[in-house]
Simulated assay, not measured.
Amino acid sequence: MKTTQLVGKEVGQVGYGLMGLTWRASPPSQAQSFKAMRAALAHGANFWNGGEIYGSPERNSLQLLNEYFTEYPADAKQVVLSIKGGLIPGQMAPDSSAGNVKRSIDECLRWLDGKKTLDLFECARLDGKTDVEEVVATIGEYVKAGKLGGISLTEVSAATIRRAAKVQRIAAVEVEFSLWSTELLENGVAEACKENDIPVIAYSPLGRGFLTGQIKSFDDLPADSMLRHFPRFQPDVFDENLKLVREVESIAKQKSVTPAQIAISWILAKSGQDGYPVIIPIPGATTEERINENMNPISLSKEDVAAIDDVLKKVAVKGGRYPDAGTAHLDM
């Protein structure tokens, strides 16, 4: 697997999203989670992305990571860890004030307990009240003190990236990016990251599982799935959005691979090309089987990428990325 650098450390071209291991109605067991995490690392997916917000204050990525690195201490040096925080504890409400950002970082460090360094920290969302310059300056104090490797931003606009980069070195910018969320290529964020030599971390590269082709109808979603509340999964647009999935499935069949492999390979084909920054997709998975699939991309030719791009021009995705409450916190 190809590598790139984050905070001076080598990371694989595909990373691993930890959200599903703790933030779902029925999370997998510790044993299953550990097996998945070890499988990701075995494939070279050593950039791990978790969150203080991925679950409750009592059970989120940090507790799982503490347990994992207690069991596998030798893995700590291999993993490059990014954690999202900066929300009010127990609420999906951002608070980017200096006091809460410091609380969040301190809490992450407390749970890691010296078993693993905190390589990157990012506010999951900005609160719209605190200037980004103040936010990154606060995080920057921990970088200067040697308690944190670098600063990341999440779901921010090109203008916000440029403002932040003027006062602090920004190590990464995390945004949703996939075949059905291509805003990154159109809203100036890719250009701003390229200008400032900032890698992009692409979350939900499989469209929250939709692009795998395994979700064929609204009823396929578990009764307790949060996706039942997301606009793009609603019954009135579901069949329209399936048109994109069918196109991806057709391409995958021609290549004798899975739709998931096509989706991730397309992101990697964009990475560092045509004026774009390095892009690291971070698919999440809870089973070794899915990880083996996600971490095994193929090489797409320029003709392959052009054919996929043509599909994206013809097939329009219906519905917003988030429900209204979530959209309100996006820095558009």
Rank of each mutant, 00 (worst) to 15 (best):
I267E: 12
S217E: 08
G55H: 01
Q91S: 09
G319Q: 06
A260N: 04
P297W: 09
G149A: 05
Y72T: 09
E288I: 13
E174D: 14
P222L: 12
H329S: 09
N49D: 15
T182A: 15
V278Q: 11
R290W: 10
A145C: 04
A36S: 13
K84I: 04
R208C: 08
K84G: 00
V237N: 09
F121A: 01
E155C: 08
T286C: 01
A190L: 10
A202S: 11
T287C: 07
E141V: 03
V315Q: 12
T4V: 12
G17C: 09
V135P: 00
R169D: 15
L185I: 12
E107R: 02
V200R: 11
A158K: 05
F69I: 03
T70C: 02
T286Y: 06
D113T: 01
E122P: 00
G51F: 03
V143F: 07
S97Y: 02
L242H: 11
A25M: 08
N241M: 11
Q254E: 13
L330A: 11
R169G: 11
A285T: 08
L64M: 14
C108S: 15
G150C: 04
I151D: 05
V257Q: 01
I308F: 09
E174P: 00
D236G: 02
G51N: 04
W111V: 15
C123Y: 03
N296R: 15
